[in-house]
């Protein structure tokens, strides 16, 4: 070994690393079963995580998760391109040929800073706030403080659901801060007395329990809590479904059963969704 020159050692090293990489990535063209899951980008990260855990527990079954929106999930399942579709809403009447498996609910809560004394906002007031017609907290009986509107970036499911619920278009919103994920929204509202925003209820409850100075506001008289969400009473919410057509293949059925089991519930909660209570 000592007699090898440096370039030789380099070559040897390259060879060894190439073999290692090959060995690590090599897959037998095995007879393992494959479950293809496509659809909603809201559910995809969750299913990817659940899929990994499922693969660990069932060696030989490979879970392939792809996004492309709820409508792709429905189309793919109908055409037989996917075994399981991910659909982040309830099924429509014309989709009765499919079977929905409710895995969780996703709800959005309005949050303000903990110092904010406003306890409830009417629907019109929320619309006026986000469109810039109400621009000072004084108009809502608090201090002379310009309102800071915290809005979500386009493409996020929360963004879409919020706009749809209040009948708004993205062009109408007069935002002061635009945020990405829930944590960023919570930090922004928690560090600014004048802010109001909306985030996933699960994330807000978690942050509140861990000392963030934010408060969730009730919506249309209903408290934004996991309990109300689970009961289906909270208005600004939607279902997260897995859909299948006819009798699913045994591995697909196993995956659905696993997703609905209590083993998967902690993973669902970690994504700030409320697992469906079976």
């Amino acid at each position: 070994m000592a007699s090898l020159s440096i370039p030789h050692r380099l070559l040897l090293l390259l060879l060894i690393s190439a073999i290692t990489v090959l060995a690590a990535t090599w897959r037998h063209p095995s007879r393992s079963a494959r479950v293809v899951v496509t659809g909603s980008s809201t559910i995809a990260p969750l299913m990817a995580e659940i899929g990994r855990e499922f693969e660990r527990l069932h060696p030989g079954i490979h879970i392939d998760v792809q996004t492309g929106g709820s409508s792709r999930g429905i189309v793919d399942v109908r055409r037989g391109l996917a075994d399981v579709g991910m659909v982040s809403r309830s099924l429509r009447a014309e989709e009765a040929d499919l079977t929905a498996h409710l895995i969780a609910r996703d709800g959005i809560g309005l949050i303000v800073h903990a110092d904010n004394p406003v306890r409830e906002l009417k629907r019109e007031e929320i619309v006026a706030l986000f469109t810039g017609q109400l621009s000072n907290w004084q108009q809502l009986g608090w201090l002379d403080l310009p309102v800071v509107i915290v809005h979500k970036a386009s493409g996020r499911s929360t963004h879409e659901l919020f706009l749809e619920h209040f009948g708004l278009s993205d062009r109408d919103i007069d935002a002061d801060v635009v945020i990405g994920d829930n944590e960023q929204g919570i930090k922004t509202v928690g560090s600014n007395r004048a802010a109001i925003g909306y985030v996933s209820i699960g994330a807000a409850e978690y942050a509140q329990a861990h000392g963030q100075s934010i408060r969730l506001l009730p919506l249309e008289g209903i408290a934004p809590s996991s309990d109300e969400l689970m009961a289906g009473r909270y208005p600004l919410a939607r279902q997260l479904n897995l859909v299948t057509r006819g009798t699913p293949s045994p591995p697909a059925q196993q995956l659905i059963d696993f997703t609905l089991s209590s083993e998967a519930a902690p993973m669902i909660r970690r994504m700030y969704f409320v697992p469906h209570d079976n």
């Binding site: 980008s41 809201t42 996004t67 492309g68 929106g69 970036a153 386009s154 493409g155 635009v178």
Partner: peptide, 28 residues
């Protein structure tokens, strides 16, 4: 991250990189 031409140093703005990071995970 508000999309607008800045008129002062105090305006919120959204650079292109931030836009990509904010919207890419869910864009179609």
């Amino acid at each position: 991250n508000v999309v607008q031409f800045p008129t002062s140093w105090w305006d919120p703005v959204r650079p292109i990189t931030a836009n990509i990071a904010l919207e890419m995970p869910y864009a179609e």
